[in-house]
């Protein structure tokens, strides 16, 4: 079958699937402008809300009738746990964007989310352990909730190591993105571990389907601290990603200078 050569210009490539809105923000120059405007407000809100939430939890909330003042650890532990899970969800979303659209900004963001997520997961495990000692009588138990969060921590660590393990960064980013997507399976396991198995860890006190199982005087400071941690987590990731974009620009400029000097 003969194919007739055409003089007409090739048709423009189709727009990326569902990506117009996202691609607009994925432009590094636009990201730098937008993040530069948002970052001070995000960081300011994070510091203010976290200080308010933690101060309120420490001094303004009555002691629990069973746990005494140890319940105040809740105001650090629960927001850290929420950020550990939420951060991984964002990491998985960014990894999906990286695999589908192969956008460098998604790769940079994924590499910067990993260490922050790992730190907040370590904070969740650490404060949980500190809370567990006086309440359960042990620092650690191989409970389904604790074990699945420990797996989440290892997934974060694996991602951190993997994206930095290859001489060719693209290969590391691909491998890290695949690991991040596979690890998403662990998120519902963490969430529902307290329902699926008999665990020492208490079930969720705040659910979408029912009234919270804690008094409002304890709920409000918790929500404030959670909002503060969310803003802080976002501000740290945005700041790290900004630095990574600028570092890449610096590398590019230095490369151009070196080439020009030859």
């Amino acid at each position: 079958m003969d194919v007739q050569p055409s003089l007409a210009p090739p048709p423009p490539p189709p727009p990326p699937l569902g990506g117009h809105g996202l691609h607009r923000f994925a432009n590094p120059g636009r990201f730098l402008r937008l993040s530069g405007a948002v970052l001070p407000w995000l960081a300011g809100a994070g510091i203010l809300l976290t200080a308010l939430g933690l101060g309120w939890g420490l001094f303004g909330v009555p002691a629990d009738y069973q746990q005494g003042d140890a319940v105040r650890i809740l105001y650090v532990h629960v927001p850290a746990a929420q950020m550990a899970l939420g951060g991984y969800l964002v990491l998985a979303f960014v990894s999906l964007a990286s695999i589908i659209w192969r956008h460098p900004l998604a790769d940079l963001a994924a590499a910067e989310i990993g260490p922050v997520g790992a730190a907040f997961t370590a904070l969740c495990l650490g404060t949980g352990s500190i809370w567990g000692k006086p309440m359960w009588g042990t620092w650690w138990i191989w409970d389904a909730r604790l074990t699945s969060v420990l797996i989440l921590f290892f997934l974060y660590l694996g991602h951190v190591v993997l994206v930095r393990a290859f001489d060719d960064p693209t290969r590391g980013q691909r491998a890290g993105a695949i690991l991040a997507l596979i690890g998403v399976v662990n998120l519902p396991v963490i969430k529902f571990s307290v329902d699926w198995w008999n665990t020492l860890h208490q079930p969720a006190a705040i659910t979408l389907s029912g009234a919270p199982a804690m008094h409002l005087s304890m709920l409000w400071p918790l929500l404030t601290a959670s909002a503060g941690y969310a803003c802080l987590f976002g501000a740290i990731v945005v700041a790290r990603t900004r630095a990574a974009v600028l570092e890449r620009r610096l590398q590019g400029l230095l490369l151009v200078r070196t080439e020009a000097a030859r």
């Binding site: 420490l58 140890a70 650890i73 650090v76 532990h77």
Partner: peptide
């Protein structure tokens, strides 16, 4: 326990 948690 509380102080160490808040410090972290």
């Amino acid at each position: 326990y509380i102080l160490v948690s808040y410090a972290l």
